[in-house]
Design a protein around this nucleic acid. Structure first.
Length: 394
DNA sequence: TCTGGGGTCCTAGGACCC
DNA sequence: TCTGGGGTCCTAGGACCC
């Protein structure tokens, strides 16, 4: 019996959700990102007026772009100011995470009508197993894998019916290959591969298409002349281990040959919850003390709200800064009890802050709660009696 | 037109305990 | 006083992912 793992990825998810609301934008370059200060205005004649990328000023990035905008070179993660230089007339829409989360639940529910469990990888993608479904092992006509293909096609239709959105599915014997092949025929792709197809369909692809090879590893591979997955597969495994370490080096060889035995994971307890914000301009601990103090308190309050809403308490608290040179500095401490209280979090985060280098200006401030436990399993720490007794940087 | 916000996992050194 | 080895926890940084 052949093992079939599916990877389902929503097509240009955030942008597609926005197009459901604003169908008049279909066919146009649209970029989603950059805070919420640029919602469409409804004009007296009932039509909507949208912000254009050229009018944007700030530090936001694109979270998604429609395929039309991608044609200009605008992709997710790109700075909006840079995107505006590439496509000044593209429509800019604010990010509405609540709506994307709602649509995310809808598509996952639709898939769960067809399979018992999903491995949830975030807001717009999931894995699931089709191996044991009726017909999954059957050939259809001259297609030896027509059975699973038909099942996946039905799931695609179910997602479309439930959400009005399209998705792409990759089918293969493992997560690694399915993830790669869900991307091969986007949008509305349905791509099936087996071990026999690896040389022809996987090896020609750039090495960075492997989930787990990021910018750093890719640059290092590139400097070794290893550009494609095929190059990696042909490389001396011992040499990779020498350059990348035993663990990562041997994984590179396995991945390049399409070997991956990770099980699907059907439940996950959150390990940490965090809140962070990037300022409109770089701030300094001393010169902007008041502004930072208020921001810091606000972050701790929002974090405490998140903890309470999720019914968890935290044993550790951490603070993160991104300095003006983009270096990230973190400090973390373990508390003597669990808490979800904003004042307690703020006090311990303040202690972290005192240990941080604060000479430089910085652009981002974040607070993180770790070592989480379900609230009903932990006795909560009494709330901040020591408030205000410590001289904190801000 | 420099680069968001929310996560996970890994590594590695030092403290501390047996 | 000195010699160990093993195990766990804490902390900081970094790579990577969506």
């Amino acid at each position: 019996m052949r093992r079939w793992i599916a990877h389902l990825d929503m097509d240009a998810f955030f942008a597609s959700v926005e197009l459901l609301r604003y169908p008049e934008l279909r066919g146009q370059p649209v970029v989603v990102g950059g805070g919420s200060r640029h919602p469409p205005l409804v004009q007296p004649d009932g039509t909507r007026r949208f912000a254009r990328l050229r009018d944007y000023a700030g530090r936001g990035v694109a979270t998604t772009a429609t395929y039309e905008a991608r044609a200009f070179g605008v992709h997710s993660g790109i700075g909006l100011m840079k995107a505006a230089a590439l496509a000044p007339d593209a429509v800019l829409l604010p990010t509405d995470f609540d709506e994307y989360k709602r649509m995310s639940r809808l598509f996952k529910q639709a898939v769960l009508e067809h399979v018992a469990q999903i491995d949830d990888r975030g807001i717009d993608e999931i894995y699931f197993e089709l191996t044991d479904l009726p017909g999954a092992q059957d050939a259809v006509g001259d297609d030896p894998h027509g059975g699973v293909r038909a099942i996946a096609a039905r799931i695609q239709q179910a997602v479309q019916a439930a959400t009005g959105l399209s998705c792409s599915i990759g089918l293969s014997p493992n997560k690694l290959l399915s993830k790669i092949c869900s991307d091969l025929e986007k949008p509305r792709g349905l791509t099936v591969i087996t071990e026999a197809d690896i040389a022809a369909r996987i090896w020609p692809l750039p090495a960075k298409r492997i989930n787990g090879i990021g910018p750093k590893a890719n640059a290092k591979l590139d400097s070794l002349g290893l550009r494609t997955i095929g190059d990696l597969a042909a490389a001396d495994p011992q040499g990779l281990i020498e350059r990348f370490g035993r663990s990562y080096g041997s994984w590179l060889t396995e991945a390049a040959h399409g070997r991956d035995d990770r099980p699907l994971s059907y439940s996950r307890d959150p390990k940490s919850i965090s809140r962070e914000t990037t300022f409109e301009r770089d701030l300094h601990a001393k010169h902007d003390r008041e502004e930072l103090g208020a921001l810091f308190t606000r972050l701790c309050e929002r974090l405490a709200d998140d903890l309470k809403r999720k019914g968890v308490v935290a044993k550790s608290v951490g603070v993160k800064l991104r300095q003006d040179d983009f270096r990230i500095v973190t400090r973390e401490l373990t508390m003597d009890r669990y808490t979800a209280d904003a004042a307690v979090i703020r006090r311990h985060a303040g202690l972290c802050l005192k240990r941080m280098p604060l000479e430089r200006r910085f652009r981002l401030l974040g607070v993180r709660a770790g070592h989480l436990l379900a609230a009903d399993q932990a006795a909560e720490m009494p709330a901040g009696q020591e408030e205000g007794q410590l001289a904190l940087p801000f």
